[in-house]
């Protein structure tokens, strides 16, 4: 079975897409820490639950951005095929 250059490029793009999704670890840890600390804060001060929740959501959304950049790189590699393949 001969492997053409295009096949090799596509295979490497798929591996690269998988590697790019390692970026998902960071937001996972970050969002978990934010949610844990928010639960902690609600436990200390149940009256401020609304403010704490909205602050937590905002922080989590910002923390998620780096993971989304990884996802975008993966999607570009797999579907847009910037290197051919």
């Amino acid at each position: 079975m001969g492997i053409s250059g295009q096949d090799l490029i596509f295979a490497c793009s798929a591996i690269g897409a998988g590697l790019a999704m390692i970026a998902g670890i960071g937001p996972g840890v970050g969002q978990g820490i934010a949610a844990g600390l928010a639960a902690n804060a609600v436990g200390r001060n149940p009256g401020a639950k609304g403010d704490i929740t909205s602050t937590m959501l905002l922080g989590q959304a910002v923390a998620e951005t780096t993971g989304l950049y990884g996802l975008l790189v993966a999607i570009l590699l797999m579907f847009v095929k910037p290197f051919g393949g």
């Binding site: 998620e64 989304l68 996802l71």
Partner: peptide, 16 residues
């Protein structure tokens, strides 16, 4: 850029 990519990435990942 970050505002639009955040929304795009989240919804696109769900769609995919």
């Amino acid at each position: 850029i970050s505002l639009s990519l955040r929304l795009f990435g989240n919804v696109l990942s769900g769609t995919l």
